[in-house]
Nucleic acid binder design. Structure first.
Lengths: 160, 160
DNA sequence: TATTGTTATACTCTATAACTATA
DNA sequence: TATAGTTATAGAGTATAACAATA
């Protein structure tokens, strides 16, 4: 491991950076009275109308956890439950206008935070960093059998 | 916003990267039967012997939350409570051997995960990324009045 | 029979308020 | 009086197991 004074190791740097970024997101969600998981829920509903079961897969939580999560979001007027017309057992969850508004505001504030963070680099450095991060994410996704730039499946097309 | 096909925006890239890294940490902590907050607790105890109050400041949690957190860690044999010899009201929390072992294993696995992730870049790209990330973190820390490379305060020196 | 979703239950995590012991 | 820590209480978030309704 090379000893570069005044510089973190690659591993530490990436770890610390992830904490900084996640900390920004947590502060913004808290600022809007949302928890991280509630924000994630609203986030995945921005461009999908999933069933409870699909939410369970998207958020990697047990279906019983999704019941409680959606209950609380619904009680706050952020989402609605709609009976599926295709399957009498299924329930579809959709964002209300209020929910859409809330998640958009959190997302906007968060994006501004990251933009501010990145603004501490010069334009050239920022472009280089952006390209390397992209390359890293694409390679990582590929290694896990995912194509980051595949056509996004939407509106119920996400069935397994 | 420049349209670079097959490349994420700087903002999206950094956000996604942070999710990938945090996901790795979460999987490793779960693998060892620990929650993220339990792992953070053990992590801060690796090089400190804080009081309950200091833990409250380090983890940014209410003192009553620390009581429960330490209770559960203690019940699992990860930490011990020691009465302070300096202040009859204070309690010092220390890692047991088992706790040290657990947090070391999580940290090692996590570091290997990040190293594996970084290994998807060439050596030259990795060095460039590392330098840019360091520069970003240092600038960010400085903007928040912190010197990342200041002498680390330890063993009770962390009083505010 | 299998699947979708909810309910019952239990545990972790968190905060607020009230309390005890010490300074 | 002020501070350190715990207890009582309440609520969010999570999982497992059992259940009802539908396929």
């Amino acid at each position: 491991m090379p000893d570069r004074r005044g510089e973190l190791s690659s591993v530490d740097g990436l770890a610390q950076l992830s904490f900084v970024v996640q900390g920004m997101l947590e502060r913004r969600t808290a600022e809007w009275g949302l928890s991280m998981i509630q924000t994630r829920l609203l986030g995945v509903l921005r461009d999908r109308r999933p069933t409870m079961r699909e939410l369970s897969q998207l958020l990697e939580l047990d279906k019983s956890s999704i019941t409680g999560l959606v209950d609380r979001a619904q009680a706050r007027g952020m989402v609605e439950r709609i009976p599926s017309s295709e399957d009498g057992r299924a329930t579809i969850v959709v964002l209300t206008d209020e929910g859409h508004d809330a998640v958009s505001k959190v997302a906007d504030a968060f994006e501004r935070d990251i933009a501010t963070l990145l603004a501490r680099l010069t334009g050239a450095d920022r472009r280089t960093l952006s390209e390397l991060v992209s390359r890293l994410l694409v390679a990582h996704a590929r290694a896990h059998g995912v194509d980051l730039f595949a056509t996004v499946e939407r509106d119920g097309a996400a069935r397994g």
